[in-house]
């Protein structure tokens, strides 16, 4: 046995750094889509490693639904300062005010789907030609066939039947005017890999991921945090529970899980023992069997 091989985390890190550098080399105006979730946080830290000692040569773009967890916003501003990186915010509220999109109504109303319009508008406004995201292939079945370099037409749409073949580590980022790419450097990571990497690299994460006391209601098997944006149904009684979040999405639709995990080690134990996927707590994926595929085709993350 020789010593010249990498652990799976080091190999995934090397692959992601390669992809991030390739984006900067091949595109004129790349950006990193930052959601405040652990995946985009890991992506930001990988970007720092990729260009050290230079600063990250692209901005973080946050599509702000206006329905954020306050903890996400605190963390975002801290991170931007920590990494000395530029922040660009695209506001869903502005898209609503301008009449670009119409707010959903009803009990399960969410701004999640509205983000797509704001995202595409932001990409067009700043003329970004590559938008990197923290999506992983293990998250959802429509993502299992996504490329590292995913081509989007001038309407921002994804055509799953007409993807470019992607071989070895040779990425083809050529495009026509007006088209752009979505790039997913951590495609090959699983939820567990992300947590193990956060542990290995001591990456600070938002407090939402750790256990805390919160007022929640139980709806369709998910625990939703009470907030100004959550319309209660008759008979729904908010109660205080010790919970944490596995993903950080739009506040009214991101479900919490009951948990006592207050350290990364305990979170990893919990993820290892979990019998549900992290997106199992996301109401937006449950709308139909192909909810994610349909949103992706129209230009969702």
């Amino acid at each position: 046995m020789n010593q010249y091989y990498l652990s799976h985390l080091k190999e995934l890190e090397a692959e992601a750094i390669y992809v991030i550098r390739e984006v900067v080399a091949q595109f004129e105006k790349p950006a990193l889509l930052f959601s405040g979730g652990k995946d985009s946080i890991v992506l930001a830290y990988l970007s720092k490693k990729a260009f050290y000692p230079a600063r990250i040569p692209f901005p973080l773009v946050h599509i702000d639904t206006g329905h954020n967890f306050p903890e996400t916003m605190v963390y975002r501003d801290w991170l931007v300062n920590e990494l000395q990186v530029k922040l660009v915010v695209g506001s869903v509220q502005e898209s609503i005010d301008k009449g670009r999109v119409r707010e959903e109504t009803g009990y399960n109303a969410s701004r999640n789907a509205l983000q797509t319009v704001t995202l595409l508008d932001t990409i067009e406004l700043h003329k970004y030609d590559a938008a990197m995201g923290g999506a992983r292939r293990d998250e959802e079945k429509a993502r299992a066939k996504e490329r590292f370099f995913s081509h989007r037409d001038e309407f921002g749409q994804w055509d799953p039947k007409n993807q470019r073949p992607e071989l070895w580590n040779i990425f083809n980022g050529r495009k026509q005017m007006g088209e752009h790419f979505r790039v997913f450097p951590i495609s090959n990571w699983t939820e567990m890999d992300v947590w193990q990497y956060i542990q290995q690299e001591n990456i600070p994460i938002p407090t939402l991921y750790y256990t805390h006391e919160r007022e929640v209601i139980s709806r369709d098997g998910a625990l939703l945090s009470t907030s100004a944006w959550l319309k209660l149904k008759e008979g729904e009684m908010p109660e205080k529970k010790r919970v944490r979040f596995r993903t950080c999405g739009d506040m009214p639709i991101t479900g919490a899980v009951e948990s006592d995990a207050d350290t990364i080690e305990k979170i990893i134990e919990e993820v290892a023992a979990s019998r549900k996927t992290e997106r199992g707590t996301r109401a937006d994926d449950k709308r139909s069997e192909t909810a994610m595929e349909d949103r992706k085709k129209s230009g969702y993350f």
């Binding site: 292939r137 429509a142 299992a144 066939k145 799953p160 039947k161 495609s187 090959n188 595929e293």
Partner: peptide, 20 residues
């Protein structure tokens, strides 16, 4: 392992899928 709607409609797999 059959990811996409168009594939399920046709009952075939049209592309390489990655599993972990």
């Amino acid at each position: 392992t059959d990811g996409l709607k168009s594939e399920r409609e046709q009952g075939i797999t049209i592309d390489v899928a990655y599993r972990y």
